[in-house]
């Protein structure tokens, strides 16, 4: 991005014409996101195919905590809103606001990751590791890759905030922020799907009922949190 200068944000950006009429970087971003749908699609398919096929516990109902994850889902949704504000501030050339909203987006993303680290750790102490059963393998692979996407997004946003601090982000370079935003929102929608599938729908899957002297029992942790 050598052509970014500090001299003027308002000079019209030199954009060379393209056959599609779309800026090439933007098209590339969308093509990448489109291909990422396939990436997550195959991980989701794997989760679905192995759903209910684990041979040992813990099974989803033993371990999935929907209320906590609902909170972290809210946090990620809020971060998308912050991202939108960052782009608006960029278009309006409000320098302080650009930095604030970029950092806010990264911060909310970091909280989401914090929840995930907490969850993974808890699962580990509760006996579910990536090699415990098919549920563990497919769950950690899918949510782990999503977490990696969020982490990459945080690094990207922090980088942008750093550049913005030097005064190099403004209407002229709004595309830089817009592309980061596209990536960030995409990560959010992937989570919308994962949350619904792995938590709201698959989170109550049980293993085989065992010994008749063991009785079914509600997950008190679930209600206790409300």
């Amino acid at each position: 991005m050598a052509h970014h200068t500090e001299i003027s944000h308002h000079a019209p950006e030199e954009e060379h014409p393209t056959t599609t009429g779309i800026n090439n970087r933007k098209l590339l971003m969308w093509v990448f996101l489109s291909s990422d749908c396939l990436f997550f699609g195959s991980l989701i398919a794997t989760y679905m195919v192995y759903r209910g096929q684990s041979l040992v516990g813990p099974y989803p109902v033993d371990i999935i905590d929907v209320p906590i994850t609902t909170i972290s889902t809210f946090v990620l949704l809020c971060s998308s809103f912050a991202m939108v504000r960052a782009l608006a501030a960029t278009n309006e050339d409000r320098q302080g606001a650009i930095i604030f909203w970029l950092l806010m987006t990264a911060f909310l993303g970091a909280i989401f990751i914090g929840f995930q680290v907490y969850e993974f750790n808890l699962f580990k102490t509760e006996g579910l590791r990536i090699d415990t059963n098919l549920f563990g393998t497919t769950f950690f692979t899918l949510t782990g890759f999503h977490g990696a996407h969020v982490t990459l997004g945080i690094v990207w946003l922090l980088g942008l905030a750093w550049v913005a601090k030097k005064g190099r982000v403004g209407p002229k370079t709004a595309l830089d922020v817009e592309l980061a935003g596209l990536y960030w929102h995409f990560v959010d929608i992937v989570w919308i799907v994962i949350f619904t599938l792995l938590y709201l729908i698959g989170g109550f899957d049980t293993g085989p009922a065992g010994d008749p002297s063991l009785v079914p029992h509600s997950i008190t942790g679930f209600l206790g949190l409300i």
Binding site: S54, L55, V56, G57, D62, G127, A209, G210, L214, G221
Partner: peptide, 11 residues
């Protein structure tokens, strides 16, 4: 498949 037997407060 075997029933879950891990002994933990929630699990």
């Amino acid at each position: 498949a075997q029933p879950c037997t891990f002994d933990h407060e929630y699990v």
